[in-house]
């Protein structure tokens, strides 16, 4: 029995997957309550399915990018459960999981608002391979890259409203959008993509932040500048 979880966005999502299909899934959009609600949500779906922690065979976790704090809540929970129950853990990019909402389309771009015009973004082909590496980038710049590919791209994002007109400016009718209801993170899809992945050592699984800590970035910049001055 596979347990999957993601708290990298405003949506908290947990799911149980028996290897063939999703048997339980619970999602809730309630920002900032992930810390208090994740463990009770897991407890609830496991009770529903009459599954005990000892019945779990694998844990799949959305490793970000997204809210730093949110990503760490799921990661800490998943790493600890996998380590202490002695079962494999798999980290899946939360962007990749999100892109599954448009599975079957040729090119799928999933993205999350990262504020100040920036996004976390990924682009995948039909088989789920990364066409461009996941990045933290200005949406303007990202869309230019997509336009240069000259392909039809399906967009999936909980923050689509905020960027839809900008996407239109760059891609025109080469941009496709999934209907409402297909833009939120779902742990069931996370389990689907993660169930066949090879495991990571739980000690070594780290979040996919896609961004340095601001203080660290500034410090590195200063080191570079100092080296120039010398």
């Amino acid at each position: 029995m596979i347990l999957a979880m993601d708290t990298s966005t405003d949506v908290l999502s947990v799911s149980l997957h028996n290897g063939q299909e999703i048997i339980e899934e619970y999602s809730s959009k309630n920002k900032n309550k992930h810390s208090t609600r994740l463990m009770p949500a897991i407890d609830r779906i496991m009770k529903e399915a009459k599954v005990t922690p000892q019945d779990l065979t694998k844990i799949v976790v959305g490793m970000g990018p997204g809210s730093y704090t949110g990503v760490r809540i799921a990661l800490s929970t998943a790493k600890t459960m996998a380590w202490t129950l002695n079962i494999p853990v798999v980290g899946v990019s939360s962007l990749r999981a999100l892109s599954l909402q448009a599975a079957g389309d040729d090119y799928v771009c999933s993205f999350l608002d990262a504020r100040r015009g920036l996004v976390y973004a990924g682009l995948y082909d039909k088989a789920g391979n990364e066409v461009l590496p996941e990045v933290n980038i200005l949406m303007d710049e990202w869309l230019e890259k997509l336009a240069a590919l000259n392909k039809q791209v399906t967009f999936v994002s909980p923050d689509l409203d905020k960027f839809q007109s900008l996407i239109g400016e760059h891609l025109g009718d080469r941009a496709l959008y999934k209907p409402n209801g297909h833009h939120l993170m779902r742990a069931g899809l996370l389990a689907e993509v993660g169930k066949d992945f090879g495991p990571t050592d739980p000690h070594l699984l780290v979040p996919n932040y896609l961004r340095l800590v601001e203080a660290e970035a500034k410090w590195l910049e200063k080191q570079k500048a100092d080296q120039h001055d010398r």
Binding site: S35, L38, M39, P53, T69, T77, K79, T80, M81, T84
Partner: peptide, 17 residues
Amino acid sequence: GALLVGVATAKALAFSH
């Protein structure tokens, strides 16, 4: 942010066992 890691870890341990 630091406290949350400890709390999530403790809850995962308590729940698992």
